[in-house]
Amino acid sequence: MPVTHEDILHWLQQSAQVLHEYSAFLTQLDSAIGDADHGINMDRGFTAVNAKLTGLSDADIGTMLKTVGTTLVSTVGGASGPLYGTAFLRAGMVSSGKQSLETSDLITLFDAALEGVKVRGKAQAGEKTMLDALIPAIEAGKQAAANQLSIAQVLQNMTAAAEAGMKNTIEMVATKGRASYLGERSVGHQDPGATSCWLILQAFSDTMTPDAAHE
């Protein structure tokens, strides 16, 4: 079963809800190695996204994701605004006109998003950023796709890899973003952006896994 237009809508709603619930937690993570606003930022952005979703019920997936991107750029600010904004914008650009996504579309979409984050943020793996959740997630997704797993399982594997990647950030020394100012003192703390990245992937996976939402 491909990812439908409704699934995307549901995913975004779910993301908004989860980011709202985890707002204080993300802010607390950011408080340790950043400036105590990541949860507030993501919550503000996805609340704005959520408000736009009703107007998007007839749009194609590309338009939807591009709208998410511009909304995040216009409402989040900070580092995460341009980064997630660019990610969704790029994802939208490669999904133009689509009403549903097959596994290969999904991989293309995530690759584009990753490229967007990299170009915008000039970071790479191992610098203790959201990339350390996103990169292993996409690798796991490609692996799962190569193994012909279902879309739901592809997303489950991506989420699990993102979670592992997120946990790996704890031991990393930050060299990009605000946490880099702390140098060695950044070690021992989980990166907030990697955490929000995992939450968003998890929301996607939950959306595509029939029973997950009712757990």
Binding site: D35, A36, D37, I40, N41, R44, V73, S74, T75, V76, G77, G78, A79, G81, P82
Partner: peptide, 10 residues
């Protein structure tokens, strides 16, 4: 911007 948050491009 918001407190301690970069403003947005708009």
């Amino acid at each position: 911007g918001a407190v301690f948050t970069s403003p947005v491009p708009d």
